[in-house]
Design a protein around this nucleic acid. Structure first.
Length: 921
DNA sequence: GCGGAGTACGTCCAATGTCAG
DNA sequence: TTCTGACATTGGACGTACTCC
């Protein structure tokens, strides 16, 4: 396996950075080439020692991590969810290298549609001069990519298999509608069943008849070799030269119709390969059903062997100034051992590294910048703050609110742009290091729930001359992530001109098992940026910032009104306050309607605001907030409003909070045993700080934690220091990865720094968050732990949260790990009057929609705050057997998204199973 | 429950600009 | 230097599926 980058430089050799796990049908190929990873144990330099150690800590296996999922192929990693035994066909693990056993019976073919370009010896050595495109081992086969059957690695790729290969229109992806869930790229291109056309993915059945594939499908001819270039997938187009096509082999309408003759009247939409999370997806190809197909391989090779399917000269054309390093040279340069680097090996297994010229001075051995191993990265669903200590990740230039995403069947629609015509700009402040870092970009949701990777959109890498930013694709979890360097020489600023957005077909995604989101009208996304900063002490600080929402549909850019900003987010119940809405597509007929809905979705109030049409413009509305329906209400009420231009032309609902009139005296009322949890959590949610359903799978929620959280939220509200768009910022506990030499065996503490997002120092100081690594990141959860130094400090905070709890499902948690929660303390703009903490305690749970509690059946929450020791006692006495019979879920006010219900149920089921299992043993 | 109208989705078409040969 | 072909990008439109009334 080689891990190869695709260098954006159009003159560089095409490099797809993604993992290619075995990719050659040519049995003569030296498979060991493809799966080797060089060691880089001695790459530290004196000035980098600390940071290198940090990386080693995070990568204790010693296998140099690479982009994509390469780390999954290393020795047993700490991440059990991603760890994979060497795939069948990879006969052993030697040191840090897997190698393939050529003698082993090849399994299903084309588990990887990504067939890596392995330049020949001659090619490599003539780099920059003359290029010999012949295959090093089989001169007759000039295809640089072939397909290596590597069965049985599903465990490694179930999760990361889900990205749309198609999304890499530019250079790196393939595409299939029906593809193996075991293939990270979907495997459309090689039939698992003897290569018969009817065994091919419908979208690719045509490829067998093709003889003259295009040379550079859907990609810049200068950037890289794409799979289709050798397999001719794009030749299917009836207009083969008319326009760019997806590298995945676009279906044409005719093709589609023909291949669905029985239902020709309708377009049958085959499933997208993206983001499969479950191999049981009905659309998934089960490669296990199919023997290795030599015939198809032959067919593929026959395609490849055509002159047109040689390595396109464009692709191998290189920049003459591009340096070429042999292994010896790299060793001398201290670059050897780069697991991240584009490692090319000649048949003689001599390593050759292709190092972009602009990296040579910045290159940290093994990686072009500080790129944390995927296995060590926090889940994309985890909330991460934008600011920690002196570090602050900031969007200097926001993306345009509209960007028409492209489908797999389309060509790219370019990179997301800024309103001014440029591109979004991200900057990391406070970084004093000398080494470049990797900035991750992915497409996240833009709804009211917690930020997470969007199910229906993926980031799409843009390449070409116009792109100035080097980018690399990576897979984290099941989402595609672009990684671009943040370089000190650029003041840690990056222009995001390489990120487009790919739309996945709704039907395909909705068919996924476990997918509860619907795609229809779910067209808003956010660009999410993350950076992981290694610390001298061995930890890593992770920062994240999300852009303002981006509407990705076609029509909405011209028709739907869109609110981008509101200068006021709350006022008193009396209303009357002027609110300025900034956005697009406002008309003279635009109206602003405030609504309130019950937790079950019933609208109980609607009031049209007064719009000052004289002042209003196409991008600005001056609105007078109407009074709330109940002037006597005594707690903050969250309502929505939207701008409507006409029938069905309304904006996304925006939030607004009506605050109660000041109350002279606050009476403390008794609360029931668990109400504090409800109360505080709900209060927080009501204040916009806890947008997610609130549940606690481990049954250890305490009133204190919730109270503290709510108080923090209140103080945040009061502070009024948050930016207007703060609700789109994930301001959460910091995550720091401390040094540990035993990541794989012992818990790794992620200790939070100061809660920088919180503008309230005392609370921020007292709020400490600890992310505990059990044995692997996938099993990690985040703890918010109270470490108050105050004499009246609260006991250990135990609030648990997980958007989908994937991280919590990794098995039974240890007792000391059970108490985990990390909520994104979303800041809110200034509001007045804000409820005090005492007011907050009076908030009635009945006003807030969703709370799920899982708690010990017999162990009720104490009325009085427990000391940490008491809590510990409770925990220690809470033996598994007891818990097995005690686990209970209380669903309050059912308004849960089914996703969360499913998650909770799943957690409980697994918990019970685990507990029962322990009980039996 | 049914049907028509409107809307959303997914795909295709065409124009334009850039770049390499 | 100019021409040509290939491709990326972009806006628009069409056919079908879906939703709403």
């Amino acid at each position: 396996m080689t891990s190869v980058y695709t260098e954006k430089d159009p003159d560089t050799l095409g490099i797809s950075e993604e993992l290619n796990h075995g990719s050659c049908q040519d049995e003569e190929l030296d498979f060991s080439i493809l799966f080797e990873y060089p060691l880089c144990d001695d790459y530290q330099t004196s000035e980098q020692e600390e940071l290198d150690i940090a990386h080693k800590v995070l990568n204790p296996s010693g296998v140099p991590y690479t982009h994509g999922e390469v780390s999954h192929y290393g020795p047993k990693s700490c991440n059990s969810s991603t760890y994979a035994e060497p795939p069948d066909g990879i006969s052993g693990y030697l040191g840090d290298r897997y190698y393939l056993d050529p003698a082993r019976q090849a399994g299903p073919s084309a588990v990887s549609p990504r067939i890596e370009i392995t330049p020949s010896h001659e090619l490599i050595h003539s780099y920059g001069r003359e290029l010999n495109l012949g295959h090093p081992m089989n001169p007759a086969n000039t295809s640089p990519r072939s397909t290596l059957p590597v069965p049985g690695y599903e465990s490694a790729y179930r999760e990361p298999s889900c990205l749309s290969p198609a999304s890499s229109n530019s250079s790196t992806s393939w595409h299939s509608d029906t593809y193996s869930p075991y293939s990270p790229w979907g495997s459309p291109c090689v039939s698992p069943n003897n290569g018969q056309a009817d065994d091919l993915c419908p979208r690719f059945q045509h490829i067998q008849t093709l003889t003259s594939p295009r040379t550079s499908p859907g990609t810049s001819p200068r950037t890289s070799v794409t799979e289709e270039s050798c397999l001719g997938l794009n030749s299917s187009s009836p207009r083969p030269n008319s326009r760019s096509t997806s590298p995945v082999g676009k279906r044409t309408y005719d093709e589609h119709t023909n291949q669905n003759t029985p239902v020709a009247k309708h377009r049958s939409r085959s499933p997208s390969p993206q983001r499969f999370r479950d191999d049981s997806t009905p659309n998934a190809f089960n490669l296990h059903q199919y023997p290795y197909s030599s015939s198809l391989a032959d067919a593929m090779n026959s395609l490849n062997t055509g002159s047109s399917c040689s390595i396109p000269s464009k692709i191998v054309k290189t920049n003459p100034s591009y340096p070429l390093y042999t292994s010896v040279e790299l060793q001398q340069e201290n670059y050897l051992g780069s697991g991240e680097q584009d490692v090319k090996r000649k048949p003689g297994s001599e390593q050759v590294f292709l190092v972009p010229p602009n990296w040579t001075k910045q290159l940290v051995p093994g990686i072009p910048f500080y790129s944390i191993p995927v296995a060590s990265l926090p889940s994309l669903e985890w909330p991460v703050p934008s600011q920690v200590d002196q570090y602050h990740l900031q969007i200097e230039v926001q993306p345009k609110p509209h960007h028409r995403a492209h489908y797999e069947t389309e060509g790219s629609r370019g990179a997301v742009k800024a309103p001014t015509g440029g591109h979004p700009v991200i900057q990391l402040h406070g970084y004093r290091g000398k080494e470049p870092l990797g900035l991750h970009i992915f497409i996240g949701t833009a709804d009211e729930r917690i930020l997470k990777p969007h199910a229906f959109y993926q980031v799409h890498r843009i390449t070409g001359k116009t792109v100035t930013t080097t980018s690399y694709e990576k897979i984290i979890g099941s989402s595609k992530v672009l990684e671009i360097p943040l370089e000190p020489k650029n003041n840690m600023k990056a222009i995001i001109d390489c990120a487009g957005i790919l739309k996945l077909r709704n039907a395909d995604i909705e068919l996924r098992k476990g997918e509860t989101d619907i795609g229809r009208k779910n067209t808003r996304v956010r660009m999410v940026f993350r950076v992981h900063i290694p610390q001298p002490g061995g930890g890593v600080v992770s920062l994240q910032v999300a852009s303002t929402p981006i509407e990705c549909s076609q029509r909405s850019a011209h028709e739907l009104p869109m609110v981008e900003k509101q200068d006021v987010e709350c006022c008193s119940v009396l209303g009357g306050q002027q609110m300025i809405l900034t956005g697009q597509n406002f008309t003279s007929d635009s109206k602003v309607v405030f609504t309130e809905k019950t937790h079950d979705g019933q609208q109980i109030w609607e009031s049209e605001a007064s719009v000052d049409k004289d002042k209003s413009q196409a991008n600005m509305l001056f609105v007078e907030v109407p009074p709330y329906r109940d002037l006597s209400m005594r707690h903050a009420v969250k309502v929505n409003f939207y701008v409507i231009n006409g029938k069905r032309k309304r904006s996304q609902p925006q939030h607004f909070t009506f605050m109660p009139l000041p109350v002279p005296a606050i009476k403390t009322e008794p609360i029931d045993e668990y109400e504090p949890n409800l109360m505080t959590a709900k209060m927080s949610r009501s204040l916009g700080t806890l947008p997610q359903p609130y549940y606690h799978p481990q049954g250890m929620m305490t009133s204190d934690s919730c109270l503290i959280a709510s108080m923090a939220s209140c103080q945040q509200l009061r502070s009024g220091l948050s930016p207007p768009d703060s609700r789109y910022q994930q301001q959460t506990s910091a995550v720091i990865y401390p040094r540990s030499k035993s990541l794989s065996t012992s818990p790794l503490l992620y200790q939070q720094g100061s809660l920088m997002a919180s503008p309230v120092p005392p609370m921020a100081d007292s709020q400490r968050s600890v992310l505990v690594h059990a044995s692997c990141p996938a099993q990690s959860t985040i703890i918010h732990q109270q470490q108050s130094t105050s004499p009246n400090h609260h006991p250990t905070s135990i609030i648990q949260f997980s958007p989908t709890n994937h991280q919590l499902r990794g098995g039974g948690l240890q007792e000391h790990q059970r108490i985990m929660y990390c909520e994104n303390y979303q800041t809110s703009p200034a509001c007045s009057p804000a409820p005090s903490a005492s007011q907050a305690q009076r908030i009635s749970p009945s006003h807030y929609p969703t709370v799920i509690q899982q708690q010990p059946y017999v162990q009720k929450m104490p009325k009085n705050r427990s000391s940490p020791s008491q809590l510990e006692e409770q925990r220690s006495s809470d033996n598994p057997k007891d818990r097995s019979g005690a686990l209970r879920v209380t669903v309050k006010e059912e308004n849960l998204d089914q996703l969360y219900l499913d998650d909770v149920n799943e957690i409980i089921r697994k918990d019970l199973t685990a507990v029962q299992g322990r009980g039996q043993t």
